[in-house]
Design a protein around this nucleic acid. Structure first.
Lengths: 202, 202
DNA sequence: GAATATAGCGAACGATCGTTCGTAAGGTAA
DNA sequence: TTACCTTACGAACGATCGTTCGCTATATTC
């Protein structure tokens, strides 16, 4: 008895820690992650948990990276392979809203938005990682808008950065209404707003 | 020597605590407020600080209420007295953006947005207060849009709730870009987006 | 089979958390 | 002056924080 873990299982342990930390952070924030609570939840010792990362900050970085991976998988990967253009942009927006609206895939709402709000005023590696991810996403979004312009789906004089800015705002606002007010109409309102911003509405 | 406080000063002490707590929460969140740090900053004992509130949660509630007061003073009060209509709505939006963009009046960004992100997934009185304030603000915003419709400045079939939803999204998104990316163009982008949402742009 | 590396444990560390208690010092009212 | 009431203090409380240490047990490599 007393089944010991193999080296294979060890990698899985780290993933399990990060996975659980993602859940904890979803409700209590990245700073609300606690080694002790994490250890209790996983039936491990505190030393066993922190041993995989060395530092809480490293654990936070790993947790945030995992959340970004989920976002990548649930939103961005949904449109890879589609031809550039307005269809692809709108499909990206729909996947984005799906992500925000699905409590299973994004419990606690958009992880990036929450982390941005939590760390925007503090120094450190976590802040830098969050800011970098936010900038990367905004730039990706703008590239999709530009692609729609290049495809002739949007006017040539479109301010692509402005469109990306507005789409991001609608998403963040939709996330707030969903999480704080649990308004079931938020997704539909966000979708209508995004289509209007993209000029795909009367 | 050793100047003792009068009963007059006592009220001022409570205000000083809340004021300092507002600053602390602006960077570390309402949960990041610490009795010990508060006491150190104010040159008081921990017991002297918590004695005014009894509980940290009560202190958080007082701090949030103070932040709401600032918002009321800086944004809403700026348009009281103006005749209802599109002018008043746009003036409200401008005051809103001013509030978001002024690091002195709102250090750490929009307090309500930050508190919403921090407490949207937790139970308790603070969550309830934040949710209530958020709902109140959205309803007030919608009332301003409806007033503009009634004044004939906006089409009669305007979806006032949708407009309020979009304005809120733009504001929250503008706040995120200002706080996380320190982009000086964010205010102007927000203003353009709001005017477009209100139909006040070509 | 011997040597090495890795994973995880239990225990302990100093620090800080929110909160409680008893007390001293002033202001206020009799 | 006497009797309160408020304000704030110092000290201590149990709990929990992140982190470190030495040790055991397994897996891997020679």
């Amino acid at each position: 008895m007393s089944p010991r873990r193999s080296a294979q299982d060890t990698l899985a342990t780290r993933d399990k820690i990060v996975d659980r930390a993602r859940l904890l952070a979803a409700s209590d924030g990245l700073e609300g992650i606690t080694i002790g609570r994490l250890a209790d939840d996983l039936g491990m010792s505190k030393a066993g948990v922190i041993g995989h990362f060395g530092t809480k900050e490293t654990l936070q970085l790993a947790t945030f990276a995992a959340a970004v991976d989920v976002f990548q998988h649930e939103v961005i990967d949904r449109v890879t392979g589609m031809p550039p253009g307005l269809d692809r942009l709108l499909r990206l927006c729909a996947a984005w809203l799906d992500y925000l609206d699905d409590g299973n895939v994004s419990p606690g709402g958009c992880f990036l938005t929450a982390a941005a709000s939590e760390f925007d005023g503090r120094p450190g590696q976590v802040h830098d990682a969050v800011a970098k991810a936010g900038r990367r996403w905004l730039r990706f979004l703008e590239a999709q808008v530009r692609a729609a312009v290049d495809a002739g789906d949007l006017p040539g004089d479109t301010d692509t950065e402005q469109i990306a800015f507005e789409l991001n705002g609608i998403a963040v606002g939709t996330n707030q209404v969903i999480q704080l007010h649990h308004d079931p109409r938020a997704r539909e309102r966000g979708w209508r707003a995004m289509r209007r911003v993209c000029g795909a509405l009367g």
